[in-house]
Write a protein that binds this DNA or RNA. Structure first.
Lengths: 179, 179
DNA sequence: CACCTGACTTCGATCTCTCTATGTCAGCTA
DNA sequence: TAGCTGACATAGAGAGATCGAAGTCAGGTG
């Protein structure tokens, strides 16, 4: 609970290997690592802060510029890339007496990244801000703080050292099931 | 459920603002955003793949180099930084007939980043690998797949649009509680 | 039709990350 | 003590991200 680093002898967390694992060098091809692929889609600080502001409700170009401390060229480039990658979508809007303009909002693909953002936020609050964070996320209705936690599909809370890792065989040029 | 982008009129996910919010321009100081601070600690692709391999069980310099496709200088630099930041810790080890060497393992601070990694992995599997990912994480014992999910402290599963955001007042140079 | 403004684009410089290639160093073996 | 090897460090170059400053452009207003 403290922000101190407890340097004990116990390895803190390590995922256990199970099943028929090909040698690590075989299955780790970078092109097949979803983490690396995710970082290729959203791997810059500016992309994260733009997504953060989109979650916070920003939609207009100027809002993104003001709220992120990023320069206009960077905001324009990121908005274009995130839209091309399907994380944001453009929509027209018009304020009275103004011409129609474009806003940006999250798609399902984009909002599905929220656990990543929340996990980063909570980690930063815990380890980098000993006095606690200033922004709190609360569950609508119940009001309890929201966290990104590891959970299995059976509903159990999962500790970092209670994970088994299995590698599936390389998918053969898939054939219709039960050929 | 499909990987198609459904461009409907409904905003997909937006966090609701509640409470007494200072104007956004006031509370959003970049230095105070835990996401940005987190990205400053672990904001490069190489840092993420090193942490990934640390979770997968790598400890030795050479293992990190082989498994990450990163160059030796990069691995050396990241290991040094991650150790200095307290996410990894060095420990001596010795193989028979060899001199003592240093290994690296995750600290609690480092392994606490696992939800971020898992969230990225799941997002990549879902949105970038339509045929499904090759690496599966299973809960030890129950065997169910493990995900990073949003959950409130009351135990409820939290949908992306069921989050209220509150901003705490700027902490005054804190005084001893109940002065 | 001339102006104004929000939404960008273009340009040039800087900084960071990463690479390949090569050098260094500690300490165990012979 | 000379050699060997794993674990780094150093040097130089290239690619990507970001910045500030300035230019473009569409479409309402007057």
């Amino acid at each position: 609970m403290t922000a101190e680093i407890h340097t004990t002898e116990t390895p803190t967390a390590e995922i256990h290997m199970t099943g028929e694992l090909a040698p690590r060098s075989d299955w780790g091809a970078p092109r097949h690592c979803p983490i690396v692929r995710t970082l290729e889609t959203v791997g810059t600080k500016s992309a994260y802060v733009l997504l953060r502001e989109a979650f916070y409700g920003a939609t207009r170009f100027e809002e993104f510029v003001e709220r992120t401390d990023a320069s206009e060229p960077v905001v324009a480039a990121r908005l274009r890339e995130l839209t091309a990658d399907g994380l944001l979508e453009k929509f027209p809007y018009q304020e009275p007496g103004q011409r129609t303009r474009s806003g940006y909002r999250l798609t399902e693909k984009g909002s599905d990244l929220l656990p990543v953002l929340v996990a980063m936020m909570r980690w930063g609050d815990r380890w980098l801000f000993p006095d606690g964070g200033r922004v709190e996320l609360a569950h609508t209705g119940c009001g309890s703080p929201v966290h990104a936690v590891l959970q299995c599909e059976a509903g159990h809370h999962v500790a970092p050292d209670a994970i088994d890792l299995a590698v599936k065989p390389r998918p053969k040029r898939r054939r219709p099931a039960a050929a």
